[in-house]
């Protein structure tokens, strides 16, 4: 209990922002993916902190759902990335540019 809750929440916000920046500036699909995971785990930290502040377990239960969803996301993501890598030997988002925009 030595670390006050606002610090946890600030850390969570900083991690979330780092993840957002990572998604926006990094070009490798794998790193972008890791950044999204960082965002989700920043949210988990917030949820646990709020759950302790509120003295309820709802927030901690949500964390399990978020973890499961993140795992499922990784499965689909890696399947798609591996499939792309098979045909063109790159996972750079800039090289995946057949579609305009």
């Amino acid at each position: 209990m030595s670390v006050p809750a606002p610090l946890y929440l600030s850390l969570s916000a900083v991690l979330f922002t780092l993840g957002t920046v990572g998604v926006l500036v990094r070009r490798s699909a794998l790193i972008v993916f890791m950044s999204v995971e960082l965002m989700l785990n920043a949210v988990n930290l917030s949820l646990v902190t709020f759950a302790r502040l509120r003295g309820g377990v709802d927030g901690q239960v949500v964390v399990f759902f978020v973890l499961v969803v993140a795992a499922a996301e990784v499965v689909i993501g890696l399947a798609i990335i591996v499939n792309i890598f098979r045909t063109r030997d790159t996972v750079d988002v800039d090289d995946v540019d057949l579609l305009r925009g």
Partner: peptide
């Protein structure tokens, strides 16, 4: 993150 903040 929205869910977490609304919960908070």
């Amino acid at each position: 993150y929205g869910v977490a903040l609304v919960y908070g």
